[in-house]
Write a protein that binds this DNA or RNA. Sequence first.
RNA 1: GGGUCGGUGCCCGAGCGGCCAAUGGGAUCUGGCUGUAAACCAGACGGCUUUGCCUACGGGGGUUCAAAUCCCUCCCGGCCCA
Length: 429
Amino acid sequence: MNLREDWQFRGLVHQTTDDTVLERLSAGGLTGYIGFDPTAPSLHLGSLMQICLLRRLQLAGNRPIALAGGGTGLIGDPSFKDAERPLLDAERLAANVEGIREQLSQFLDFSASAGASKALLVNNADWLTTISLTDFLRDVGKHFTVNQMIAKEAVRSRLERDDVGLSFTEFSYMLLQAYDFLRLHQDYDCTLQLGGSDQWGNIVTGVELVRKVTGHSVHAITSPLLVNADGKKMGKSEGTTQRVWLDATMTSPFAMHQFLLNTDDASTPSRLRCFTFLSHDEIRELDESIKSAPQERRAQRALADAVVSFIHGEAAARAAQRAGDALFSETIDELDEATLLAVMGDAPSSTWSREELGDGVSATEMLVRCGLAKSRGEARRFVEQGGVYVNNRRLASDPEATIDLSRALHDRYLVLRRGRHELHLVVAG
RNA sequence: GGGUCGGUGCCCGAGCGGCCAAUGGGAUCUGGCUGUAAACCAGACGGCUUUGCCUACGGGGGUUCAAAUCCCUCCCGGCCCA
């Protein structure tokens, strides 16, 4: 099984500059890079595809470069965005780059033992913040005409809209990214850039720049953007309620596991291919299980286990698994105290005074203070609609309902749930 | 700088003096059906001490018994001209 066959099976390739790249990658020994935007202190599931691509590259004996966009982040990529991006200040950006560096270092092999395919992490702020404007315009800008730049699909919609514009700053973004490729080619002999299919325009601009400046031909591979069954980009602001972050303190392993477990049937095969390193046979078998026994959701379970293991480790994946099983398929009041705490370990919790709970606290009040409702009005609505559960038993849909210690598990714990998924552990102090 | 069009709830977008917390769509949320899914159906969707009150239609000021709606001014954006 070589890389080309594997990538084709997994559907990782959307477009390439030429057919031979995949063959050459299969042979190993190339250097390829992917850029990561430091828009937040953590990467999220939307970047998992890119992370896996770099890893696959490395496993096949190539050198992966992860490029943190500390410089391009100062500008903001306008590709297919429908409005001007707010600028991030340099300090936040630097902090974000740091966070991302740390995360990426877990997924690639940066040790000397990797030899020629030892991964590299670079920050384009190193060159983008130091090059002079006139040098940039002469050495980079001179190679492109505005005519071809405005013809790019990625910016077209912004140019055609009559309510928002495209600032010169954002318009210049593609040149900065092109310059990155040139630098990586010159400094590290990098001959390949990968990215999502929305990056095609930016990437080929880089390919062109390298050719014009050095005469060398370098390559591009884009991968399809994964969408949910409803056509929305996954992992962006969608998901259950928020983005699914890779940082365990921002999105708990349990929440991530749940998110993946809830993947709809139609999207599961492609996610298994892109986000896991399972063998082709295993994947085919899981595909089959979706058709033959969808209610078992073996494929979703395998996906959730594999991804959480990859990101947070096997122990975290097992814990998330157990927590889900306990919370959704057993009666929670049968759990012993240690198990209950382990299961609820990921969920937010709060400590309440015994006296207060003894007297009974109104359900709406409790929902608001636990952060399960944004306002009393919303809390009242949840109760009225029957969306509130204590220890997995639905609360009477009475807005005056109160909750007291008599329901507590082990005389201290109340598992408060709102709707299907939002949990909170109330502890009597 | 000049002209012109526009800025409404999470987003899009109606309203153009009282019947407006503001039509409609999307998103989201809750419930039902299910498989902790999708689709579908029903409901909710500014806040509160909830038969009422408060805050909101870019900011400020004004006219009026009454303004998202009229006037002035400022800020922001699009387009055209310079």
